[in-house]
Amino acid sequence: MLSILDRYILKKYLGTFSLLLLLFIPIGITVHLAEKIDKILENEVPFMEVMIYLYNFTIYFANLLFPLFLFLSVIWFTSKLANNTEVIAFLSSGVSYYRFLRPYIIGATIVCAAALVFSMYLAPKASKGFNEFAFEYLNKGKKDRDQSNVYTQINDKDYIYVSYFNVTEKVGSNFTLEHFEGNKMTYKISAGQIKFNEKDSTYSLFHYNKRKIGENGDILENKPKLDTVFSFDLEDLTPVTYIAETLNFTELNDFIKKEKARGSSYINRYEVVRYKRWSLPVSAYILTIIAVAVSSVKRRGGMGVNLAIGISIGMVFIFFDKIFGTMAEQSDFSPFIATWFPNFVFGILAIYLLRNAKR
């Protein structure tokens, strides 16, 4: 059973966090809309599509920054408790500091569970709508989705390459397909241009060449144009870098497994997305403990000092998260270490601050 103290602090915890979301999300929407309104009007985007986009942006924005909102909300209401000497009254009544911390941990568990479900299943759908709207209307489409130097392993035997692929026209340049049996290439198909035909899901190869490699000599086949089918999908020629963000938990695991088998160059980027879905909810616990340790002490400068300290710590956390995430995406740095290292560092900081606050 929850005591009066538990219910009182838990109500403050969840209420302040919800209030902060309700205050900051409209501000985020207003700023974002003000920045994009010219392109929305220029492209004559239907009103309902704009509303759906803003809904998706709200979920995307809340999921991205919820640890910071949670951190600031805990600092805010705990500082008020400290300034009103309520914390001193709690501890003077015989309640230990760890007992005082219990409702915060309960609140963090509730937020952590909600954030986990949110990031695994709801945020991916919103991210898909958010990115697709941006590419279609805000970036004037599609050019940003064009791909250069795409090299992909389709299966254990086939590799494809295209020097450039235009998403709008579904046309690529300098296409090759290499087929291997063991470590030996058995044939190679090349074409000056490849075009995807949506009507029947076939491909047209222009300036088609095929070389079959044999022990007694190669067999060459040339045609001005060849219509054929391949075992790969159009998406293999147009790998979208944000696709991992749009997949739910099960889909993402299957997708990463498939891409690893293909030897995709974007594996680290996809791994970062997967690990962040676990690491960000866990950060709710760490940031809650830091926030309580920082703000439960009554300071001479009042709430302003606690907020300044809290905002500084929050900014450093976001900085660590972004820097290490980018390192993993752009290099061979371990995605697991990159996503969990900020939690590890700030977990140590939380233990240190908690011991000092207890004294």
Rank of each mutant, 00 (worst) to 15 (best):
I4Y: 11
I4L: 13
D6N: 13
R7W: 15
Y8H: 12
G15A: 08
P26F: 12
P26V: 14
P26C: 04
T30D: 08
A34R: 06
I37P: 07
N43E: 14
F47S: 11
F57S: 01
P67K: 10
F69V: 13
L72C: 09
V74A: 09
V74Q: 12
W76L: 15
F77A: 05
F77G: 05
I88M: 12
A89W: 02
F90N: 05
F90H: 13
S96H: 02
L101W: 08
P103M: 06
Y104N: 07
V111H: 00
V111F: 01
F118D: 15
A126Y: 11
F135D: 07
Y137R: 03
N139G: 04
D146F: 02
I154S: 03
D158H: 09
V162R: 00
N174V: 07
L177R: 08
A191L: 13
A191R: 08
Q193F: 05
F196S: 04
K199P: 01
K212D: 11
K212R: 11
G214E: 08
D218Y: 12
K223Y: 07
D227F: 03
T228S: 04
F230M: 14
E235Y: 06
T246I: 04
I256T: 05
S265E: 14
N268Q: 13
V272Q: 01
R277L: 12
I290C: 09
I290R: 00
A291K: 01
V292A: 12
V294T: 02
R300D: 12
M303Q: 05
I318K: 11
D321K: 07
I323N: 01
G325E: 05
Q330K: 15
S334I: 03
I337Q: 05
I337L: 14
A338L: 08
T339Q: 15
N343K: 10
F344P: 03
A350D: 07
